[in-house]
C-alpha cells in the first residue's frame, strides 16, 4: 500500500514536472493505433511512423499497433469503432483509400462514427509512359483519348483507387465520357510498373515515389504529376500546367475513438501535432515523397466530407457506384 502511494506520488510529481517543462502537451499513456491494412503498406507505414514520432516527442509513453487488414480498411474501422468507444488514447489511420472503400462497399460503420483528429500528408500520383512510347505529353494522350478512348489503356491500382479516379477526372476535364475509359486495374505498384515497363499498357499511374526510380533511370517517361504545383526538386510538369484542371492526391490522416470529450480530442490532436514536428517524422515524409499537409479540428472534418462527395461523384461518373 505504501509503495503504491509512493509510486502514485512520484507519478504525480513527474507529471507536474513535465507540465511545467512543456506547457503545451501532456504525455498520453499507452496509445493504441488501429491499422486497417496488413503490415508493410502505406497505412502501416503511416501509423508506425506517427507512433514512433509521438514517443520521441514525449507525447505518448508507449504505442501499440493492431493490424486488421481488409476491404480498404473498413474492417479495421468497424472493429475500432466497436471496441474503443470513449477510449481517449486510441486512433485509427485513415485516408482517401478508406473513403473510396466506404463509398464503394457502403459498410454499416463509417468514419462518421469516429472522431476526426488530423490530416497528415498528401502523396501525389505521376503519369508515366514506357520510354519508347510515341506519346510525349499529356496533350498527346488526351488527343488519342479523344480520337479513340478505348485505345488508351490506363494501368493503375484497383478500381475506385485514387489512380482510377484521377484518370476519370482527366477524361471528364478533356470532354471524354469517364465511362468510356479503358482502365486496367493491377494489384500493387509492382504489377503495374511491370506492365508499364513491358509496354502492356499505354499510360500508367501510381504514387510518385514508386515510379521515381524508373523515371530517373530513363526506363519510363513522366508526363505529369497530379499535385497543384511541381514537386520540390522535380521537373515533371503538373496536369494544370498542361491545361487539364485536375488536382488530386492520396491523403492520409488519423481519427480518434467515438464518444471522446472535446478536451480529450484536443489532447490527442495536440499530441499528434507535436509528433509531426519530430525529425523522424519529417525524415519519413521526405523518404516516401509524402507532402506534409497538416489539417486539424473542424476544418479536417469538413475536408473529409468534401472528399467523400468528390470521390462519390467520380465513382458515379465511371459507373462504380449507382
Amino acid at each position: 500500500m505504501s509503495t503504491r502511494t509512493t509510486v502514485t506520488m512520484r507519478g504525480a510529481l513527474m507529471a507536474g514536472l513535465l507540465l511545467s517543462l512543456s506547457t503545451s502537451v501532456m504525455a498520453l499513456d499507452n496509445v493504441k493505433f488501429m491499422i486497417g491494412a496488413n503490415p508493410g503498406g502505406g497505412f502501416d507505414q503511416t501509423g508506425r511512423g506517427l507512433g514512433k514520432a509521438m514517443v520521441e516527442a514525449g507525447t505518448a509513453k508507449s504505442v501499440q499497433y493492431e493490424n486488421k487488414g481488409g476491404a480498404g480498411g473498413t474492417i479495421g474501422l468497424a472493429q475500432f469503432v466497436n471496441a474503443s468507444k470513449g477510449d481517449a488514447n486510441s486512433m485509427i489511420v485513415t485516408g482517401a483509400v478508406m473513403i473510396g472503400a466506404i463509398v464503394q462497399n457502403k459498410p454499416p460503420v463509417t468514419l462518421a462514427n469516429a472522431t476526426p483528429i488530423a490530416r497528415l500528408f498528401y502523396e501525389y500520383n505521376v503519369f508515366v509512359v514506357p520510354a519508347a512510347s510515341p506519346l510525349k505529353s499529356m496533350a498527346d494522350v488526351v488527343a488519342q483519348l479523344k480520337k479513340d478512348p478505348g485505345s488508351v489503356k490506363w494501368g493503375g491500382g484497383s478500381r475506385g483507387s485514387v489512380d482510377h479516379i484521377a484518370v476519370a477526372m482527366i477524361a471528364k476535364e478533356s470532354g471524354v465520357d469517364p465511362g468510356k475509359i479503358n482502365y486496367v486495374p493491377f494489384q500493387g505498384g509492382g504489377e503495374a510498373s511491370a506492365a508499364i515497363l513491358g509496354s502492356h499498357v499505354t499510360v500508367g499511374t501510381s504514387g510518385f515515389s514508386e515510379m521515381q526510380q524508373f523515371i530517373k533511370s530513363g526506363k519510363m517517361r513522366a508526363l505529369a504529376v497530379t499535385s497543384g504545383t511541381r514537386l520540390p526538386g522535380e521537373s515533371v510538369p503538373t496536369l494544370k500546367e498542361q491545361s487539364i484542371n485536375v488536382e488530386i492526391g492520396n491523403w492520409r490522416g488519423v481519427y480518434g475513438a467515438p464518444g471522446i470529450t472535446a478536451d480529450q480530442r484536443k489532447a490527442l490532436t495536440d499530441a499528434v501535432v507535436a509528433a509531426t514536428k519530430q525529425k523522424s517524422w519529417t525524415d519519413s515524409l521526405a523518404g516516401n515523397d509524402w507532402f506534409a499537409a497538416l489539417l486539424t479540428g473542424d476544418d479536417f472534418a469538413k475536408f473529409v466530407d468534401a472528399e467523400h462527395k468528390r470521390i462519390e461523384d467520380s465513382m458515379k461518373a465511371v459507373g462504380l457506384v449507382k
Binding site: G40, G190, Q213, K219
Partner: peptide, 24 residues
C-alpha cells in the same frame, strides 16, 4: 525494383528505410 511477392514488397520497404531504392 518490382516486388513479385508479398515478402519482396516488404523487403522493398526495408531498403527504403535505409533510403535505398531497389531497382536499376
Amino acid at each position: 525494383g518490382i516486388p513479385t511477392s508479398a515478402t519482396a514488397a516488404i523487403l522493398i520497404g526495408a531498403f527504403q528505410n535505409y533510403n535505398l531504392q531497389p531497382g536499376p
